[in-house]
Design a protein around this nucleic acid. Structure first.
Lengths: 131, 131
DNA sequence: TGTGCAACTCCAGACTTCATAGTTTAAATG
DNA sequence: CATTTAAACTATGAAGTCTGGAGTTGCACA
C-alpha cells in the first residue's frame, strides 16, 4: 500500500485501485466507446454494436459505469418505454483516453488478420473519431 | 458479424473480437504498463507493483500476453532461477496506447479521493512516462 | 385474443480471479 | 549434515464475472 510507503522511488499504481474493478471489466471500455460513438445509445442498440456481449453483462456493466458517474441513464415514459444512455463529462474524458487503445487494436487486427478490411475501408472516419 | 454486412454505415467493432479476450482481462493492461515502466520485470516484482493481483492470475495473464506476442519471456539458468519479462514491439505500441487511459485514471483518482497525493508528488515523471 | 416492442431479469453452467499454501533446485548458513 | 533462503511459479477451493437463452412487464395495434 503506497500510503504506508516512505520510499520515494516506489512507483505507486494505487490510483487504479478505486477504478480497476470498473474499467477492468471485460466490456466497460467498449461500452463507453460505443456510447461516445453515437452520443446516446439504447440498450438493444448496444447489444447490436457490441457483438458478443450478453444482456446480463451489459446490464451489470451499465450499472457499474453509472455508479461511477461515467454514464447517465435517462428513461422516457413512453410506450414502449425508452431508455437512453449518454456519457457524463468524466465519461467523455475517459472515452478520449480510450481512443488510442482502440486505434491500436484496429491496426493490429488488420495487420495480423486481414478480416473486415473492406468493412473498415467503408467506415467513415468520424464514426470512430468523433466525441 | 461485419464480414457478412453490406451496410456501409454500420460501425464495425470486430477488430476487437480477436483481442478482447486478451486485453479485456482485468489486469492485462496494467501488466503491460508495469513492464513498460521498467523495461524488464520479474514475476515477484510485478506482484509487488500490481497491488491486489494473485500469482495465479498474474501467471495466466503473462501466458496470454506472451501467446499474443505482446511480451517476451526470458529465463536464465541460475540458482535461484531468474525470469525476466519485457515488451515486444507490439507490446511497446500497446503500452503507448494505454498511457492516456492511465493518466485519466490518475487525475480522476486524485480529484475524487485525494489518497496517495504525496506519494504521487514524490514520483519522478520519467518513471511513468518513459518507454 | 394475440402479437410485438423495449428494457431488462433470471438461471445454469462456464470461465476468471482470489488468497493461501506448497513445489523445485541448489547454494549459503548454522 | 540439516536448515534456511530465494525465485517462479503450481495447486486448491471458494468467490466473482460472463455467456446464452428464456421469461417478465405494460400497453399499443391488428
Amino acid at each position: 500500500m503506497c500510503e504506508q510507503s516512505n520510499d520515494a522511488e516506489h512507483v505507486c499504481l494505487c490510483p487504479l485501485e478505486g477504478i480497476i474493478d470498473t474499467i477492468g471489466r471485460k466490456w466497460s471500455l467498449l461500452v463507453v466507446n460505443a456510447i461516445g460513438n453515437r452520443g446516446r445509445l439504447r440498450f438493444n442498440q448496444m447489444m447490436d454494436e457490441l457483438n458478443g456481449i450478453s444482456p446480463t453483462t451489459l446490464a451489470d456493466t451499465l450499472k457499474e459505469l453509472q455508479r461511477e458517474g461515467l454514464i447517465k441513464r435517462e428513461s422516457f415514459a413512453e410506450i414502449p418505454p425508452r431508455v437512453e444512455y449518454s456519457l457524463t463529462k468524466d465519461g467523455i474524458q475517459l472515452r478520449r483516453a480510450i481512443l488510442p487503445l482502440l486505434r491500436w487494436a484496429s491496426t493490429r487486427s488488420t495487420a495480423t488478420k486481414r478480416k473486415c478490411a473492406t468493412a473498415y475501408r467503408k467506415m467513415p472516419a468520424h464514426r470512430v473519431e468523433r466525441i
